[in-house]
């Protein structure tokens, strides 16, 4: 027998203290791998930072919004595989942002990047160099950020539909078939009465 504190149930002895590393509740019922979970806690933020690096470095080296977004998305995939979760698509437990919102924000930013120049009398989608706090930034970075967010949204949506969606489907059909077999046996038992 292990000695666990009274408040934490036995199954959740390793529940993370900071909720945002794993989405929602700690998965109790699924098969868990300690190795992957522990690794994810280090990898998840690191990969996210790396994805931002890819996003920004895109103008000078391989990278860009698409690669950066995919990398960030893969971080979420990793977290989902390690931790599962009811939805699988949360950004963090504190930040309630649904994937379609994220995708829409991305597209909105891209559209701002596209039509914003019109307000300054320039053609659609033109870019300019802006000095921002002493750093020279190209305004087309906004388009890249839009792509980045949209890709993350797409990956999260994939997790929501193909990941946890299918998982829940499986649970439901298992529950259904259990209920059906229960009903079958019940009706078989009362078949004479009917």
């Amino acid at each position: 027998m292990t000695t666990t504190p009274e408040k934490v149930p036995f199954e959740q002895w390793d529940a993370p203290e900071e909720e945002w590393t794993l989405p929602g509740a700690c998965p109790v019922r699924t098969n868990r791998t300690l190795l992957l979970e522990a690794a994810t806690r280090f990898l998840f933020p690191t990969v996210l930072v790396f994805s931002v690096y890819l996003l920004i470095v895109g103008h000078y080296a391989p990278g860009g919004g698409f690669s950066g977004g995919l990398t960030a998305g893969l971080a979420f995939v990793l977290r989902y595989i390690a931790g599962g979760g009811s939805e699988g698509a949360e950004i963090g437990s504190k930040l309630r942002l649904r994937p379609p919102t994220l995708m829409g924000t991305g597209l909105l930013l891209a559209m701002i990047a596209a039509f914003g120049p019109v307000a300054f009398g320039a053609p659609v989608l033109s870019s300019a160099k802006v000095s921002f706090l002493g750093v020279e930034v190209v305004s087309s970075l906004l388009l890249d950020v839009g792509v980045y967010l949209l890709i993350i949204g797409v990956v999260l949506d994939l997790l929501r539909s193909l990941g946890s969606g299918i998982e829940r489907d499986a649970d439901d059909s298992a529950a259904d078939s259990a209920a059906d077999s229960a009903a079958d046996s019940a009706s078989a038992g009362s078949g004479d009465a009917l």
């Binding site: 860009g64 698409f66 087309s140 388009l143």
Partner: peptide, 15 residues
């Protein structure tokens, strides 16, 4: 504003 031609194509020339 890009050293990387691919990035320039993606976000500017063929935006």
């Amino acid at each position: 504003g890009a050293d990387n031609v691919i990035a320039a194509i993606l976000v500017d020339f063929r935006a």
